[in-house]
């Protein structure tokens, strides 16, 4: 029984870190620009497909270093797209009602889905993880897949990188200043527009990177963008919109609730995530860490 529970915890943590990887860029952008970006899942999917395309053109197998390198390349590529999207879309919607911005990002998601379907087809593809990540090791009687360890490590690494950036680097501190009070930041001669662009580029870059890292986590199909974005929405809302730490904690909380729920009521997998999300929103509408400020 104890070992069952530990296995469920490993499972939950893997899910949680995969979700946090998606949510990290999303919550950063929300904290600074108050944009809830539906298209985030779409650009994540684009990153995953880029890694898939590279792996296929290189004969299907990537080494661990290659896999990481191309994930970073996917991140950079999507970051450049982020700059384009900022110029073409987000800049023109500053000051427009949030509902319209949400709808615009949904339109972007549709567009990306269409492009993915058009290039790679509507069917499913598989990316095999690099050879060193295939298989599992035994921690006592519990089986822990190497790929789970990789995803969990990647999630923790992104958390620390973002935390360091926001709290210990000077551009990160400017991002925080703009998130807290853009008007005051303008008075202090901060180029707020540039900070917005930097945030969007980082947010999109994180989406592309997460897409690369998670490419082998599940089958690739054009629905991936929509599925991952809803889980990430859950994490950032429960965590408190805009809070990176909150999203991290919320992803773990939601992962545990969902995994244990599924263990106890196996007939309804996946439902406890939404139950927890709805309950959380009703009890604490502003989330665990209840301020819309990146911290």
């Amino acid at each position: 029984m104890v070992f069952d529970i530990l296995a469920v915890v490993v499972n939950a943590l893997t899910w949680a870190m995969a979700t946090f990887l998606v949510a990290a860029g999303l919550t950063l952008m929300f904290g600074v620009l108050h944009i809830l970006n539906f298209a985030h899942g779409g650009f994540l999917m684009l990153g995953a497909y880029v890694v898939f395309a590279v792996a296929r053109s290189l004969g299907g197998e990537l080494s661990f270093a290659g896999y990481l390198a191309f994930s970073v390349v996917a991140g950079l590529g999507v970051a450049v797209l982020g700059l384009v999207v900022d110029i073409v879309v987000f800049r023109r919607l500053r000051g427009v009602d949030n509902a319209y911005v949400l709808i615009a990002t949904y339109a972007l998601l549709l567009l990306v889905e269409g492009v993915v379907k058009h290039i790679w087809g509507a069917g499913s593809h598989l990316v095999s993880p690099p050879e060193v990540l295939i298989g599992a090791f035994f921690f006592g009687p519990i089986v822990i897949p190497y790929y789970s360890v990789f995803v969990i490590a990647a999630g923790v690494a992104v958390l620390f990188a973002l935390e360091w950036f926001l709290h210990h680097s000077s551009p990160g501190k400017l991002v925080q200043a703009v998130a807290i009070d853009p008007w005051m930041a303008t008075l202090l001669s901060v180029n707020v527009e540039r900070i917005y662009s930097i945030t969007i580029v980082i947010g999109f870059g994180l989406a592309g990177l997460a897409g690369g890292i998670l490419a082998a986590n599940q089958g690739l199909n054009p629905q991936l963008g929509g599925i991952s974005i809803i889980q990430a929405f859950g994490a950032i809302i429960v965590g408190g919109m805009g809070s990176v730490r909150g999203a991290f904690l919320a992803a773990i909380l939601l992962g545990l609730v969902d995994s244990f729920g599924t263990m106890l009521v196996p007939d309804f997998p996946g439902i406890f995530f939404y139950v927890a999300l709805a309950a959380m929103l009703l009890v604490r509408p502003k989330g665990l860490i209840g301020a819309e400020v990146t911290r």
Binding site: L93, Y106, L109, E113, V116, H118
Partner: peptide, 22 residues
């Protein structure tokens, strides 16, 4: 009959409408 074109056209139109003709 065109895979993916529906999403590209509707997404593009929707985006154009939100941006240019609200």
């Amino acid at each position: 009959t065109l895979v993916g074109i529906t999403e590209i056209v509707t997404g593009g139109l929707l985006l154009a409408i939100v941006l240019a003709i609200p």
